[in-house]
Design a protein around this nucleic acid. Structure first.
Length: 259
DNA sequence: CACCAGGCTCCGA
DNA sequence: TCGGAGCATGGT
């Protein structure tokens, strides 16, 4: 059973807000939504949200596979049960994780909110719940490609501004073809993304996992290195198999909220 | 005031 | 190829 709060706030996406206890507001594509946990399973009948929340994937089966590999991973997967890997827009995921580097989640949310315009232009209210969830679509790469670093100054994203612009240009001119990365070999897809200034292995892997639903991608960072050393000494990411990305998300969530 | 934040680039050995 | 400073900004 999908857990909305865990799924939306485990660090895989940045445009949702819990505007009141149990009330989640966010924008996906050009749809602004207000959900609560009770909206499931009714939500699953809507094809758009069904796809976004990845309701066709058998997470129970994946959990069992992961839990069987290692007792520590079993703990992490129990703690993370209910997390789904969202099917986010590749471009939005790429931008989000470029902005996430050397940054923290609240500030990432703020920057992305400003990038989408919702922080400066909030609708008057939405069922009384609206606070600062950005009810505006994520800007397209063609739009951002026409901007300059100075134009992005109001975002206050610092040195990441030129990275965003380089990403926008390379996606717009076809240097990086995001849709092709769905089926490209993992290493090839990673190398393609790393043509972008400011995109290293971590950002590339996060883009693949969260933006292209490449469950085989394993974002390795300082957190994960620490976790691997502590809980899985001598283990390599490949050990986690085709659901390595999901394992990574469980472990990340476990470090943040469990442990 | 120091330190940190889901890293990456650049530079020097 | 490897290690470490520097990077802009905001929060604690």
């Amino acid at each position: 059973m999908l857990n909305l709060r865990k799924t939306l706030f485990c660090g895989q996406c940045f445009r949702w807000r819990e505007t009141a206890p149990g009330i989640f507001c966010g924008t996906v594509g050009n749809r602004f939504a207000v959900f609560s946990q009770q909206d499931f399973p009714q939500l699953s009948s809507d094809p758009f949200w069904h796809h976004y929340f990845d309701l066709d994937t058998d997470y129970a089966a994946l959990n069992q596979q992961l839990a069987a590999l290692n007792s520590n991973l079993q703990k992490a997967s129990l703690h993370g049960a209910g997390i789904h890997i969202l099917r986010q827009d590749p471009w939005e995921a790429l931008c989000s994780f470029i902005l996430s580097q050397n940054n923290n989640i609240p500030r990432i949310q703020g920057i992305i909110g400003r990038l989408c315009g919702g922080e400066e232009n909030p609708p008057e209210s939405y069922n009384g719940f609206f606070q600062k969830a950005a009810a505006y679509p994520f800007p397209r790469p063609e739009t951002l490609a026409s901007y300059s670093v100075e134009d992005l100054a109001p975002l206050r994203c610092g040195f990441r501004a030129r990275y965003i612009l380089d990403a926008a240009r390379k996606v717009t001119d076809g240097t990086v073809q995001l849709e092709k990365l769905h089926t490209a070999p993992l290493e090839e897809a990673r190398a393609s993304l790393m043509q972008i200034i400011g995109v290293g292995p971590k950002v590339a892997n996060c883009t693949l996992l969260y933006g292209l639903h490449r469950m085989d991608a394993f974002p390795m960072d300082v957190w994960m290195k620490r976790a691997m050393k502590r809980w899985f000494p001598g283990t390599k990411p490949e050990t986690f198999g085709p659901a390595a990305g999901l394992a990574q998300q469980y472990i990340f969530d476990f470090i943040r909220n469990g442990e």
